[in-house]
């Protein structure tokens, strides 16, 4: 029937709108817990170094994904270099953002890893691959132990 009796009158087409309302708690795990506590309470950054190969992970995690062996936490500065950046002008619904957002992949000093986060206090035209940036945190009172405690990274 679908082959020879197509609906051609758009006014007859039916659909039902639906939504899925979903809520979770996302546990940050041992590595996340240590990282976010250090960030919130002391404004410090932690990475995780593989006890076997020495590769230093950022974001930190409790195992090395190459050796499948354990890691130990090491403190890092939180500063890094811009490896790549993007200037986004549209929001989740593909509508214009009030202010374009600049995202960057930032290679974190003292680690083999990186963070994806926002850049701030600079114009898109001034960003260069390789430029040195440092994190700007919320005030200690405002910090919640979340990745958004880092507001953005700005030029050193």
């Amino acid at each position: 029937m679908v082959f020879n009796e197509k609906i051609v009158d758009a006014g007859e087409l039916k659909h039902i709108e639906g939504k899925i309302e979903l809520y979770w708690i996302y546990t940050s795990g041992e590595a996340g817990d240590r990282f976010f506590k250090a960030l919130k309470d002391e404004g410090k950054f932690l990475a995780a170094k593989c006890t076997c190969c020495g590769k230093t992970y950022f974001p930190p995690r409790i195992y090395c994904e190459y050796d499948f062996s354990e890691t130990e936490f090491v403190e890092i500065s939180g500063e890094g270099c811009v490896r790549a950046f993007a200037v986004a002008t549209l929001d989740n619904n593909e509508e214009s953002l009030k202010n374009p957002e600049i995202y960057a992949i930032i290679d974190m000093d003292g680690t083999d890893g990186c963070i994806i986060h926002l850049l701030g206090e600079m114009d898109a035209e001034d960003i260069r691959v390789g430029m040195k940036v440092k994190p700007v945190l919320k005030s200690k009172e405002e910090r919640e132990g979340r990745i958004t405690d880092i507001l953005y990274f700005k030029p050193v």
């Binding site: 790549a84 950046f85 993007a86 200037v87 986004a88 002008t89 549209l90 929001d91 989740n92 619904n93 593909e94 953002l97 957002e101 995202y103 960057a104 992949i105 994806i116 986060h117 926002l118 990745i147 958004t148």
Partner: peptide
């Protein structure tokens, strides 16, 4: 992080 459409990840 941020409010942008996830296409930003491809741009990075």
């Amino acid at each position: 992080i941020g409010k942008a459409h996830p296409y930003y990840f491809a741009a990075l």
